[in-house]
């Protein structure tokens, strides 16, 4: 399931959620981010029970972008038990993203 980060506290979301998280830092004006939309949709369906995907619009959440030292979009960060596991920057192939997700799932189930 893809959750857009609205007014929730990201920290609370991390605490409440026991699955690995894929944080997708994006913005509506970003072309490569738009190109990633179908890939994220596909991954969300494929890993629905294993991972939570959170979309973070950097225009609305500059604080989070700063906190995670995001200086380019799209940036994809996996979080396992609340800690950053891996990050990918720029447009990605589905295979690249899946590899990162599988690593996060395996680590979480560790």
């Amino acid at each position: 399931m893809i959750t857009p980060l609205n007014n929730q506290d990201f920290e609370a979301l991390i605490k409440e959620n026991h699955q690995p998280i894929l944080a997708d830092f994006w913005a509506p004006w970003c072309r490569p981010c738009q190109m990633m939309l179908p890939v994220i949709d596909q991954i969300a369906t494929e890993y629905a029970d294993q991972i939570k995907i959170v979309k973070i619009d950097i225009g609305e959440h500059e604080d989070l972008a700063e906190k995670f030292n995001v200086l380019s979009i799209p940036t994809f960060i996996t979080l396992v038990h609340g800690q950053e596991d891996q990050r990918l920057i720029g447009q990605q192939t589905p295979q690249n993203l899946k590899k990162m997700l599988i690593a996060a799932i395996e680590k979480a189930n560790g």
Partner: peptide
């Protein structure tokens, strides 16, 4: 440095 201050897309990353 890609995504750490180096970018090839100003429209994407200029806002940072």
């Amino acid at each position: 440095f890609l995504g750490r201050g180096l970018s090839y897309c100003a429209l994407c990353d200029g806002q940072f």
